[in-house]
């Protein structure tokens, strides 16, 4: 039987992490499936650490979301419309039981290609705040999640928060998720789009697709094509080739690769249209 610690301060947590041999536990919704009656290994439970939970404004005018913030807390938070996609995703991660326990940090660190939190955060230009006894560093989210089930965490390091920069608070966002049933859906594909308009035209578009590549991706070509578009033109400016350029869908039990490729374009159009509505 391994050890278990649930420190209340970051200093204590960092101390315990120093040897680099701990399994970090947040909501538990990804760690418990497949386990026996208890978790194996030495467990460091981060959920009581002050400063790792909750949403707060940053000094630079952005938003900091503690890694142990639950989906329910995000869904219920008072946030600008740029966060609508993230809040919508929060309401569609598992059932309410999972939303009450599962955390945004756990979702990112688990690094499932179908993680619902990733596309909305990519569309918010999120950065990962990593802490270790050696200090704090920031990584763009796209550099933090490096592959399926792979993140750029050193052995003595933890994800402390995701940071949304002030400029990303502009605009409105939307989240569209596709699955084969109504609740408890593991996405076939999902899209988050954040659109900033100015004088009736798209000034800035941030569009990300999940479950259609090893890691969720932004779609630079689509974003570029949307620049300057009037809302009525937006959908037609989204073309399959631009969507496909960033994606590498696979066949799995939920859908074929070819289907995902086609569905992604349609979902991008819908998400962009909704964000512009």
């Amino acid at each position: 039987m391994g050890s278990y610690a649930r420190p209340s301060t970051l200093a204590e947590a960092l101390n315990l992490m120093a040897p680099g041999d701990k399994r970090l536990l947040a909501g538990g919704t990804d760690l418990y499936p497949g386990a026996g009656t208890a978790l194996s290994g030495d467990i460091l439970d981060l959920t009581a650490v002050a400063g790792l939970s909750g949403l707060e404004p940053t000094a630079e005018g952005g938003v900091r979301i503690g890694a142990c913030t639950t989906w329910t807390a995000i869904a219920e938070a008072d946030l600008p419309p740029a966060f609508d996609a993230l809040r919508a995703a929060a309401r569609q991660v598992g059932g309410r039981q999972i939303q009450n326990a599962g955390t945004i940090g756990g979702n990112l660190c688990n690094a499932s290609p179908a993680a619902d939190g990733v596309p909305p955060l990519l569309a918010l230009d999120a950065r990962a705040e990593l802490v270790s006894p050696r200090g704090t560093r920031l990584l763009p989210l796209a550099d933090f999640i490096t592959g399926p089930r792979k993140v750029a965490l050193d052995r003595d390091e933890a994800l402390a928060a995701v940071l949304i920069p002030a400029p990303a608070l502009a605009g409105r966002s939307a989240f569209v998720k596709l699955g084969a049933r109504a609740y408890l859906v593991i996405s076939i594909a999902m899209v988050a789009a954040r659109i900033v308009t100015e004088a009736g035209r798209v000034r800035e578009a941030a569009v990300a697709v999940g479950a259609c590549s090893a890691v969720a991706r932004r779609l630079p070509a689509v974003e570029a094509a949307l620049q300057g578009a009037r809302p009525a033109e937006a959908a037609e400016r989204i073309v399959p080739a631009d969507v496909a350029a960033a994606l590498a869908p696979i066949d799995d039990v939920r859908a074929s690769a070819a289907y995902r490729a086609g569905a992604a374009t349609e979902l991008v159009r819908r998400a962009v249209t909704e964000a512009l509505a």
Partner: peptide, 24 residues
């Protein structure tokens, strides 16, 4: 299921529903 997939083990902790199979 012991995996948070079925909800049969739902309990309330401080009034909020969670899957007890996923709670240490």
């Amino acid at each position: 299921c012991d995996a948070g997939d079925c909800g049969a083990c739902t309990v309330l902790i401080d009034g909020a529903q969670v899957c007890a199979c996923l709670v240490p």
